[in-house]
Simulated assay, not measured.
Amino acid sequence: MTYKALKLSFVFTVGLASAAVAQECSPKIDDSLLTEPGKLTMAVSPTLPPMAYAESDGTLKGLRIELGVELAKRLCLEPDFISTEYATMVPGLKGGRWDVIDAGLFVTEERLKILYMIPYENLAISISTSVEGAEISSVEDLSGRRISTDIGGYAERKMRELNVDFEADGLEPMDIALFDNYATVYQALRAGQVEAAVSIDPVAKLYQETGEFTHALSGMYATPGSLSFDNLEVAEAVTAAMQEMNEDGWLPELMGTYGVSQADDGEIRLKGPNL
């Protein structure tokens, strides 16, 4: 990750919610393990309403923001959110720029070799089209079309794998346009630069509810989304807090509010190297 990329990130607080978590209790993670003493620093991508997004005044909202605030509260820390692109998240974590990736990184075998991950949200890939655009009712209908998705993510990987399948079946591959985040993925669709946008179910569902796009396909290649860490002790402390909020009902209620199902049948487990 370049210095320029970091400079283009913005640190957000969550208004009064941040002050509310400054409780008189002992932090459950030692300052020596944290990016900033007394703070849980989390990388987010606020471009995915309703999962994480920024209002016009910079206030962060969404499922992952509420989760991050509650985690910090239970750990007796102050929540700090850093907005950044997905491509910078793992390098930034490895470089000590943040403590947690709170962006629903898809759990893959490759990532589990280098990251500690807590799968908690069940996500699947969706296809969106313009309301009067391409008729897409099956995966095969994507053949030969120009599509947009986020660079370096699970969706890009699955679309490239689908292209291999298309070519093996004698079908024309998709022309895949890559963008830094889902906001620009959908901007490309809005501008007519692509015929379909590839995102995740909650994002595509929300865009359909606004009436701007059609949620053409959903539930594709379902896989867990996670909180991700580089430090095992930090990961274990967060896992304990997640298990607590799962057992007392806070986490299931949050997930239900956003219409997102829990991964791993609702069990909270830490996964990663040698675990």
Rank of each mutant, 00 (worst) to 15 (best):
Val44Gln: 11
Phe81His: 12
Ala19Tyr: 13
Asp31Ala: 15
Ser130Leu: 07
Val21Gly: 04
Ala22Ser: 15
Lys28Arg: 15
Leu112Ser: 09
Thr108Lys: 07
Gly153Gln: 08
Pro46Leu: 01
Ala52Asn: 09
Gly95Phe: 01
Val100Glu: 02
Ser18Arg: 06
Glu66His: 06
Gly95Gln: 13
Leu93Gly: 04
Cys76Asn: 08
Val14Pro: 01
Pro27Glu: 11
Ser83Gln: 14
Leu123Lys: 00
Leu16Glu: 14
Val90Leu: 07
Pro46Thr: 00
Leu48Met: 10
Asp80Phe: 08
Gly144Gln: 01
Val14Thr: 14
Leu34Pro: 12
Pro37Ala: 07
Gly104Cys: 03
Leu60Thr: 02
Tyr120Gly: 10
Glu109Cys: 06
Gly92Val: 02
Pro119Tyr: 03
Tyr86Val: 04
Val139Pro: 00
Phe106Asp: 05
Glu70Tyr: 04
Leu71Cys: 04
Asp99Lys: 04
Leu33Ala: 14
Leu34Thr: 11
Thr41Phe: 00
Asp141Met: 04
Ala52Glu: 08
Pro49Gly: 03
Ala103Glu: 07
Leu142Met: 05
Gly96Pro: 09
Ile65Leu: 05
Pro37Phe: 06
Ser128Thr: 03
Gln23Val: 05
Asp80Asn: 13
Leu48Trp: 01
Asp99Trp: 00
Glu135Ala: 13
Gly92Met: 10
Glu132Asp: 15
Gly104Ser: 14
Met51Ser: 13
Thr35Leu: 01
Pro50Met: 06
Leu77Ala: 08
Cys25Asn: 10
Leu48Ala: 13
Arg64Val: 12
Arg146Ala: 15
Thr129His: 03
Thr59Ser: 15
Ile118Gln: 01
Ile127Gln: 08
